[in-house]
Structure formats: structure tokens, C-alpha cells
Design a binder for these strands. Structure first.
Lengths: 219, 219
DNA sequence: CAAATAAATTAGGCTAATCTAATTTACAAA
DNA sequence: TTTGTAAATTAGATTAGCCTAATTTATTTG
């Protein structure tokens, strides 16, 4: 089994590859993990020996297939536990991230699969992120950033790219909820402020920063 | 927060105090933790500095009040997770111990209390062991060992002192389940074999070793 | 293309938790 | 009360994961 620390490295590399391209830099990984670069170099050498990453000295690295599978497994557990915490225990969607970071390291495939079944094989976590199935298949979403859509169009709000408590509770406050149909009434030329019409609800005016963190499936 | 390792030491000391009297020996603790005695001595010095144990060099040790509270908290989490695994996820009572050993180290009082509520504030885990409440109160049971009861008497089977998979699945096989009313029909003089009548069910003949691992509340 | 700068690595050390081997302490028995 | 033995502790080393300071490698720019 992999250590807690190793698993966190794997997950962080996976996420950096997803967002910042295929090859990851030592300093980038050090920064997201909150450690100093020499620690990353040390750890990468060990993980490279275990065939978890492909590492070229001084030239960046990426996950090997084995590492990718571990990453998917951790993400699956993380998101299933988030669903459990919100749907069953009544946590809010902005409270569950740190808890799921602990729970994702519980090592039991049987537990994971029973939890999945108990939750009704959910397809997405409370933030709309897709949950890999037991075979590691991760459904590809057609969602795009709200900031990429023209005024006049509409779509369904299906996910966020910012998972911070502050952002999520801001959305609660202005009344934007997962699943809402959003109609883009106007985009202000000057500062890219979005005026949105929420299906059956009031209007909301949000900044470009916000529009850039909302994922929408166009209708 | 305490480390995983520290928590395991605390829990083990608590259990040894419960079963083997108030003061624990280095070698006894080493043995249950699967480490060598010098490791225990080292760790005890650290835990003593943190006021978790009361330690007298070469003369044994016991939990300090602070350590006792930590132990109760871990036991509470362990037993609540066992209830969750059996009642909600459908695990058998002989499968849950090792998983609960991992889950008991999740550090969140809020999670623990929400889980407790979700499970309906259970008083005992799937093996009949009492669950401390949120204030650390642990209900004192009136259960006694079946082996201490005279032939002719009867009682309700409420717990086990052996939590091994082999023992628990043996009980399943012979059809002895938690909550059963057991009537002691006969105790064989020669080898202390017990002949039991299970309420509404068939008879069972069990060895003294088994009778010594069953907890009963006399009726 | 050489120099300056930024990023990565090496070198050497620290702490937590473990180990083996050697020594000391506690206690029981003669 | 001395002695023998079992238990406990000290001494010294190891591994995982981290650190700072020094050095090397890669990249950008004049």
C-alpha cells in the first residue's frame, strides 16, 4: 500500500497535469503541497523507483500509468465520501472538502464499492465533479466555462472550478445552485460583468471572476 | 492533534488497563502493538512529557486523564463506524474490525456527532460493545461471562469478549446471534462443555472456551 | 553566444518511530 | 542477603519525509 504522503503527491501531480498541461515542474508541485522543492525532488526519486512517475532529472515529470490509476482511485473515494457527507450526514457543500481529504486515504476497495452502491452509484459529487466508476472510467463532461458563452444563450449550471469555502458560500448567498438553468441576459463590455437570469428565480449580477469559475452545459 | 501511532498506543494502553488491571507493563504493550520493548519505552517518554500517560521508570505506567479521554474518543469513533459498516453498508459483524481501525483515526468531532445522529444514537456496536456518548460517558453493562452462570439459568446474549473473525463466524455457523435468549440446559462436569437451548431455535453444544467468550445478561 | 537569472538538484541535518545489542533494574529463590 | 533471571532501559543505527544552504542545470536576454 502507498503512504498517505505518497498518495497526496500522486493526487497533486494528477491535478496539475489536468490543469497545467502534461508535464509538471518541481516548484509547482512543491507549491501546491506546501513543501519546499528539495523535498519534492527526494520524493520523486523514490516514486520513480516504484514506477509511479516518469521522471527526467531537471526536466519535469508526469504520472506513469500505475500512478494514474492510483490517482483515479483516490479521486473516486474523495468524491464518493463527499456525496456521503452531504446527502447522508447533512453537511453543506462548502464544508466537506477537508474531511474528504482524510477519508480518501482509507484503503479498502470493498468499502469504496459498497459505499458507491449505498449512495446509488452517483455520477457526480456535490460540486458537480464527475465520479470515476469502479473500473476507473471517468465520464467526460460537455461543460464549459460560463465566461465562454455569449450573451443571449442559456445553459445548466453543472459544476465549479473553484472549490473554496468562500466561493461556494458566496454562490449560496446569491442563490446560484447546482442544476439551475442560467440565462445570460447581458455581458457588460467594459468590465465583463454578467447579468444572469436564474430560472424561476431572481436576477444575479456577477463578476467575470465568478463567471470564470462556473461550469455550464449549453442548451 | 495526535499522530496515528500515538493514538494506537493510547487505545492499546486503555484496553490493557481494562482487562489486565490498572498498571501496564512495557512488554505487554509491546506485544499487543507488535513492536519491540525499546520502542515502547521511547514512545512512553514522549507521551509522558505530553501528559498522556503517568510513567514510572521500570515500574509500569497507566493513562493520565487526558489520555483516557483520547482513548474514549477513539473507541467512540471505532464503534460508531462499525455500526455504520454493518447497518448501512451491509458488512458482516466479522468483517468490520480492521476497517474501523482505519476510520477511527479520522479527526472530526463534528463528523463523529453527525454520524452518531445519522445512526440513531446507537448504544452498542455490532458485537455488543457499548458506545461512549458525545460526553465520553460509557454505559456500564451488567453482562457477565456465560461461563460464570449455573446450569438451569438463562440470559440474553449481549456481547463477546473475543472479536476474531474465526470466533464470530463460528457463532454464525452454530446459529448464536446477538440478542438471543440462551437457556443453559447442562454443564458437563468432566470438560465444562455447555449444552445451550437457543430461544425458539435448536440446541447448541459449545466448549468452555466458547462459553468464556460470550457475555450474557441474566434474566 | 555569453551572461544573468530562475529552477532544480545535491549535500548535510532534523524528527518520529522503529530496530538490535548491551546494560541496568527489579524481584524471587536459595 | 546474596544471586540468578526476567523485564526494562540505554546506546546507537535506520527509514520516511522534511528542512536550509550550496551548487548545478536550464532558460532568457542583451
Amino acid at each position: 500500500m502507498h503512504s498517505f504522503t505518497e498518495e497526496n503527491y500522486i493526487k497533486a501531480i494528477y491535478k496539475l497535469q489536468e490543469s497545467n498541461g502534461d508535464v509538471v515542474a518541481t516548484s509547482a508541485l512543491a507549491s501546491v503541497l506546501g513543501v519546499h522543492p528539495p523535498s519534492v525532488t527526494d520524493m520523486l526519486k523514490k516514486m520513480s523507483r516504484k514506477k509511479l512517475v516518469i521522471y527526467h532529472k531537471s526536466k519535469g515529470f508526469k504520472l506513469a500509468e500505475k500512478g494514474r490509476q492510483v490517482a483515479i482511485g483516490i479521486i473516486r473515494k474523495h468524491r464518493l465520501w463527499e456525496v456521503f457527507l452531504v446527502d447522508k450526514l447533512g453537511f453543506r457543500w462548502d464544508e466537506v472538502h477537508d474531511l474528504a481529504e482524510e477519508l480518501e486515504h482509507i484503503h479498502s476497495e470493498l468499502l469504496t464499492n459498497k459505499l458507491d452502491a449505498y449512495l446509488g452509484y452517483p455520477k457526480a459529487d456535490p460540486h458537480g465533479d464527475p465520479i470515476p466508476d469502479a473500473n476507473g472510467e471517468l465520464p467526460k463532461s460537455k461543460a464549459v466555462l460560463l465566461s465562454s458563452i455569449q450573451a443571449g444563450n442559456l445553459g445548466k449550471f453543472t459544476g465549479v472550478t473553484d472549490h473554496s469555502t468562500s466561493f461556494l458560500s458566496y454562490l449560496d448567498k446569491v442563490g446560484i445552485s447546482l442544476g439551475d438553468t442560467i440565462h445570460i441576459k447581458h455581458v457588460e463590455e467594459y468590465d465583463k460583468t454578467y447579468t444572469l437570469q436564474l430560472k424561476g428565480k431572481k436576477e444575479a449580477v456577477v463578476s467575470h471572476k465568478v463567471a470564470n469559475s462556473l461550469l455550464i452545459i449549453e442548451e
